[in-house]
């Protein structure tokens, strides 16, 4: 038997192997499992209205988690997720309230968020500082600066364009907000980047083995910069989605967004050590958290249990990742 035939015979893995080999299968089973449990215990859970609510509640963290996934895939971590998003809501809200054109205001806000991502990326890639420290610093700086700008308090933002992402449309009985569609479009776009382009390949390669990436000629620093830049842009879009959900710019909002987005990424099966995982898992991870919160609330269980169960899931997810890494 020649080597060529051996290669071609085993080249296309069986369907079973392919399904089991897909990293997001585990999280998907968990999601389906929770849905089944909640549906059996409460008939209201599967009502189209309730599903719409779950999706709407998932929009902001789900979107922020896209950027967080990109950063974590490069073996980094982003603690400034929430702060950059709040930067977007405050800037857009301030400008609109000062009478500027809403599209221009939102554009400037998204641009500033992208700039914040660029700043983080420059420090991480340029000065080779650890992502944890850089984004922790940016979190502190932005949080303080935003409270100073808004004089400590939240303020209402009443503008139809900024609130547009909260508008709804009906798709076959489901009430979807435009925000949900924008989130899904972002997932599709970034999924394509990660899985179908050189750029995405290199994100994985850098997270996996930065030295190898450098040796094969990938411009590692420039690539890291582009990752943080894109993440910042996504946080800016998330700010628009946030204003659509709650027309209020609050410097004290999103304090748990950092950990929530990391939770979604980790539960979705992306490794905190970089280079493994993907965006579909993150979407599932964000939905798991959303379903869990909603289902437990519907069941009338103390909200503290939600955090407890989420915490257990995070630890299980990381333990599974560690075990699979040790095996290989």
């Amino acid at each position: 038997m020649s080597t060529a035939t051996i290669a071609s015979q085993q080249d296309t893995p069986s369907l079973k192997a392919r399904i089991l080999g897909t990293p997001s299968v585990g999280p998907l089973l968990v999601l389906v499992g929770f849905c089944v449990i909640f549906a059996l215990t409460n008939p209201r859970f599967l009502a189209t209205q309730n599903i719409s609510i779950i999706l709407q509640q998932t929009v902001i963290i789900g979107t922020l988690a896209i950027g967080q996934t990109l950063v974590i895939l490069t073996a980094g971590i982003d603690l400034a997720v929430g702060a950059i998003c709040v930067l977007g809501t405050i800037v857009a809200g301030k400008l609109v309230n000062l009478g500027y054109d809403p599209v221009l205001s939102m554009g400037i806000a998204v641009l500033l968020c992208t700039g914040a991502g660029l700043a983080a990326g420059s420090l991480i890639a340029g000065l080779r500082l650890p992502p944890f420290i850089v984004t922790l610093g940016i979190l502190g700086i932005l949080t303080a600066a935003l409270r100073l700008i808004s004089e400590g308090g939240a303020f209402p933002v009443r503008d139809p364009f900024l609130a547009w992402t909260g508008n709804t449309m009906k798709v076959g009985g489901f009430v979807l907000t435009y925000g949900i569609l924008i989130m899904l479009a972002l997932y599709g776009f970034v999924w394509y980047l990660l899985n179908q382009t050189k750029w995405g390949r290199h994100v994985y390669a850098i997270g996996n083995n930065p030295e190898a990436a450098r040796l094969v000629g990938i411009p590692v620093r420039r690539h890291l910069l582009s990752v943080y830049l894109l993440a910042g842009f996504i946080y800016g879009v998330a700010a628009w989605l946030a204003l659509g959900r709650i027309p209020n710019a609050d410097p004290n909002a999103m304090q748990t967004a950092n950990l929530d987005s990391i939770t979604a990424v980790v539960i979705g099966g992306t490794s905190l050590f970089g280079g493994r995982g993907g965006l579909i898992g993150t979407l599932i991870g964000a939905l798991i958290v959303g379903v869990l919160r909603n289902g437990l609330t519907l069941a009338g269980i103390d909200p503290l249990w939600q955090d407890l169960v989420t915490g257990i899931l995070v630890i299980i997810a990381v333990a599974l990742d560690q075990m699979s890494r040790r095996r290989s």
Partner: peptide, 16 residues
């Protein structure tokens, strides 16, 4: 100079 989590073909063409 390999990315261990990527497949063989991806590693062969890594950077190219």
């Amino acid at each position: 100079a390999m990315a261990p989590a990527l497949d063989i073909a991806s590693n062969l063409f890594l950077g190219r």
